[in-house]
Design a protein around this nucleic acid. Structure first.
Length: 523
RNA sequence: CGGGGCAUAGCGCAGCCCGGCUAGCGCACCUGCUUUGGGAGCAGGGGGUCGCAGGUUCGAAUCCUGCUGCCCCGACCA
């Protein structure tokens, strides 16, 4: 009897040890596989970013230099961003419209600083017809079909829109005019990176006209708040709010407001801008209105935009060395269900249970995918959906069905636990909210940890190498800003709006400063 | 627009120096069997104008010339 017990004990020990060694083996295999597929952030941050975009199937380079193909999964995220923003625009009284892709060249010369800002990166249409190459194969430009006036492919639409507004606005009764357009624009960039900087990109541009300066400023500030709220609530992206220095201001603006975010490599990324344009465009395009006193005046303008660059911000803020990490509110798929089975019978049972859970989750508005492909193994599916950043994964096997449980894995923490299938919808709903909050908090903690006041030039030069935001005093001159940029590659990301500003002395020149500004190296 | 590098199967690469068998490897793909709780295994199979155009040579992925495209690093930029 004793001997039997002893043997059984030995057997258990043996099985346990084997189990441990299998686990270790799996762990090693897993890590090797990962390392092979995805570059780590520490190893090469840019390559890591490129790998995520590719592996998560978000976008790829196209046959056209500098332009990208946004793939269905990437576009689905952009569509969710669009939907949320569009509602916020409508809720603040804006309407959508659409203006032409092409802008007559002469329009551009009407606003001096605007031309200067964009002239170097404009694509120009000079002809409108092709013909068969008389000397051989293919087609050539038909020189007969030269345009009388060349057309610029819009890098932004202020000029064509203000030219149009002239005929829309006669009286203060026509104001405010609150228009947004969703469009593509082209800026001929030398060096491009998927989402962050491409020759063609998608965006929205708001263009508003107002009777008074105060109202236009209020509009620009309102839209900055909208962007900040979108970034923080939807993207889980903490942002600083502020205004740009003269050097960084939009070409043609009186004041540029911006939201600025910190990426995991400590670099800053401008996530949205809103401009108070004064009467610059109204004067350039002669847009006047009769005010209440029956006097002619130029209208006051704003413009504001965010682009597919936000996709880059989203990726670089939350993702890890296992792939993309998406905040639940923007994830095209919030929950993926993976059935675990050994035979046809189990396949049927686990898929049935999966469908049942899917319905329960969908009933409370959760976006769910049941991955019932029989051509891939569970392990493969786990990794694949991790790459793609799906916030929550449920795995259902025969054991779960017996016990009425399901394995829940969180993408943000990479942790797993078991939960009862009863009440799964509210469990998952709560979890999604938790993940959304956790991602924001993690990003905020990271930003806080990498934001430091600096008070001497030596300290500035030392700290900027470590990345992050530096809060430093600046004498307010473009010359000092330029000098700092040349010496350290850091620029003023913004002059904060929301903090009390204490006077001090400029970290570079030692001259008086009105308050600290945020310096960083930027995308 | 300056400096550097690369171009060979869908993707990643070897072969090139020193020219010579049927151009090879990994992943992916197809078929079959075994598998399925963290990227499955075995067996078999398909897929190539070696970036383009010339030249040298009996013979060129390999040597020479020109062209084109892409990537990386700088300047510019959201």
């Amino acid at each position: 009897m004793l001997l039997l017990r002893f043997i059984s004990f030995l057997l258990r020990v043996f099985l346990f040890l084997r189990f441990i060694s299998t686990l270790k083996k799996l762990q090693i295999l897993y890590q090797t596989a990962m390392a092979k597929e995805l570059t780590t952030r520490e190893d090469n941050y840019s390559q890591w970013y490129n790998d995520i975009v590719t592996k998560a199937d978000l976008a790829e380079n196209s046959a056209v230099r500098g332009c990208m193909v946004i793939k269905p999964y990437g576009y689905a995220i952009w569509e969710r961003m669009q939907a949320a923003l569009d509602k916020m625009f409508k809720d603040t009284g804006h309407q959508n419209a659409y203006f032409p892709l092409f802008i007559p060249k002469s329009f551009f010369s009407k606003e001096a600083s605007h031309v200067e800002g964009f002239a170097k990166e404009c694509a120009v249409v000079t002809h409108y017809r092709l013909k068969n190459d008389p000397d051989g194969k293919g087609v050539v430009v038909d020189e007969q079909a030269k345009l009388e006036e060349e057309l610029i492919v819009r890098p932004t639409s202020e000029t064509i829109i203000w030219d149009t507004y002239r005929s829309w606005i006669q009286s203060y009764r026509d104001l405010p005019l609150l228009i947004n357009q969703w469009a593509n624009v082209v800026r001929w960039e030398m060096r491009t990176r998927l989402f962050l900087r491409t020759a063609e990109f998608l965006w929205q541009e708001g263009h508003t006209a107002h009777a008074t300066k105060e109202e236009a400023i209020a509009e620009a500030e309102q839209m900055l708040r909208v962007y900040a709220e979108f970034a923080e609530e939807w993207m889980a992206l903490p942002v600083l709010r502020g205004v740009k220095s003269a050097n960084e201001r939009f070409a043609g603006a009186v004041e540029t407001y911006c939201i600025e975010a910190m990426m995991q490599d400590g670099k800053a990324l401008q996530a949205g801008t809103s401009h108070f344009l004064g009467q610059n465009f109204a004067r350039a395009f002669d847009v006047q209105f009769l005010n209440r006193e029956n006097k002619l005046d130029y209208v006051w303008a704003t413009s504001w935009g965010v682009s597919t660059r936000l996709m880059g911000a989203l990726i670089m803020t939350h993702s890890d060395d296992n792939g993309l990490v998406l905040p639940p509110k923007l994830a095209p798929i919030q929950v993926v269900i993976v059935p675990i089975y050994r035979n046809d019978e189990q396949y049927r049972l686990t898929c049935d249970k999966g469908r049942e859970i899917k319905q329960q989750l969908e009933a409370v508005g959760i976006r769910v995918k049941l991955d019932d492909r029989d051509t891939q193994k569970p392990g493969f599916k786990f990794t694949e959906w991790e790459f793609k950043g799906v916030p929550v994964r449920l795995a259902i096997g025969p054991r779960d069905i017996e016990q009425g449980t399901v394995e829940i894995a969180r993408r943000d923490t990479l942790t797993k636990e078991f939960a009862s299938i009863d009440g799964i919808a509210s469990t998952v709903q709560l979890l999604l909210e938790t993940i959304q909050r956790n991602l924001f908090q993690k990003a905020l903690d990271f930003r806080t940890a990498n934001t430091k006041p600096v008070d001497s030039w030596e300290e500035f030069k030392e700290q900027i190498e470590k990345g992050g935001f530096l809060l430093a005093h600046w004498d307010g001159t473009p010359e000092t800003e330029q000098a700092i940029k040349e010496e350290t590659k850091a620029t003023i990301r913004l002059i904060p709006l929301e903090t009390d500003r204490e006077p001090g002395v400029c970290v570079y020149s030692g001259k008086p400063s009105a308050g600290r500004v945020v310096f960083a190296r930027a995308y």
